[in-house]
Design a binder for these strands. Sequence first.
DNA 1: TCATTCATGTAAGTGGTTACATGATTCA
DNA 2: TGAATCATGTAACCACTTACATGAATGA
Lengths: 184, 184
Amino acid sequence: MARVKQTELAVLCVLGVQPMTGYAVRAAIREQLGFFWSESFGQIYPALAELERTGLVERHEGTRAGSSTYSLTSDGRARLVQLLKEPDAPAPRRDGLMLRLFFGRVLGPDACRELVERARDSARQQLAVYEGVRASVEAETTFPEHQAYWLITISAGEHTARAAIDWAEETLASLDGQRERYVR
Amino acid sequence: MARVKQTELAVLCVLGVQPMTGYAVRAAIREQLGFFWSESFGQIYPALAELERTGLVERHEGTRAGSSTYSLTSDGRARLVQLLKEPDAPAPRRDGLMLRLFFGRVLGPDACRELVERARDSARQQLAVYEGVRASVEAETTFPEHQAYWLITISAGEHTARAAIDWAEETLASLDGQRERYVR
DNA sequence: TCATTCATGTAAGTGGTTACATGATTCA
DNA sequence: TGAATCATGTAACCACTTACATGAATGA
């Protein structure tokens, strides 16, 4: 059904904060939503054209030659609220690490160990990043009305990362047990 | 680059356990990998044709008229091991709940509360499902060499679900604080 | 006998990325 | 002056789902 709806929603969200160019929309998504969202130019520009066609955004002369800033119309803001209220589409399930571990017998405990160690290390790195971002968001006072919501998403990242670390450590212990049984 | 590589890997994985029809491949993926993987017929049949063309699987007469069972060739098994060793492709990031909460200011604390409650409830349900599956896998003795690996993936699901529940409960408390500040 | 399950496949459409082409502006 | 960044867009391709068409076998 609904075409480019995910992209449409993300674009409306960032334009809801302030008017900007397509280029800036992508930068905002990368920098602010990078932990849980991504969009490419190949999605953003067609989406902006479609949003303009349906009257949800307005196009204004940009500061540069050939550039345009887009801003939400009141229809656009209504649509944004409507889309935000809709339940989100279920994400396609494709977890390569789990697939590899489910068939772990094929690779054996040592190779699985490596996979899990890599997962643990990247989760640790992620956690450190989240903690850094938390500190800078807590220090930030430019958008106090958004702060609490931003912290909620950071907290989700921290919980997820910590869960991954805990699971990895447990799993490494269990793989050691596995290994002993085969070695002896 | 590599086309249908994800599907190719999943199909090789399940055919690595035992030869079966395309229909049965899909059933196996649904029933056994359902928590972290999905494939549709529209992927599976072309993938099987391609795998046969490249000599990674062999096609045999099935028990029924017009049906075929596929089995791994030795090339196919080598390819399976090779693909399992490769690091998994990063999943596309698109978390609708996080997007909604990041822009939570637009909907306000009450609507966000509902979103988080729904997330908590579905995580609780998930956790119950995982615990049920764990019990039946622990009771199962048909594939003892796979059991430990299956439990690892179930454990990952449990950790993820528990993290989601913890985060949701924390977040609900924080949203209450948010609400009070605006009401008073 | 007839609904259900098993079984194979294709076509249309969705949603997405990457690479490319193009050019203006900024700033060291 | 020339590298980096800002800016817009398209074309080709990839991965995937849904719906459809077809029919054999099973079993209540």
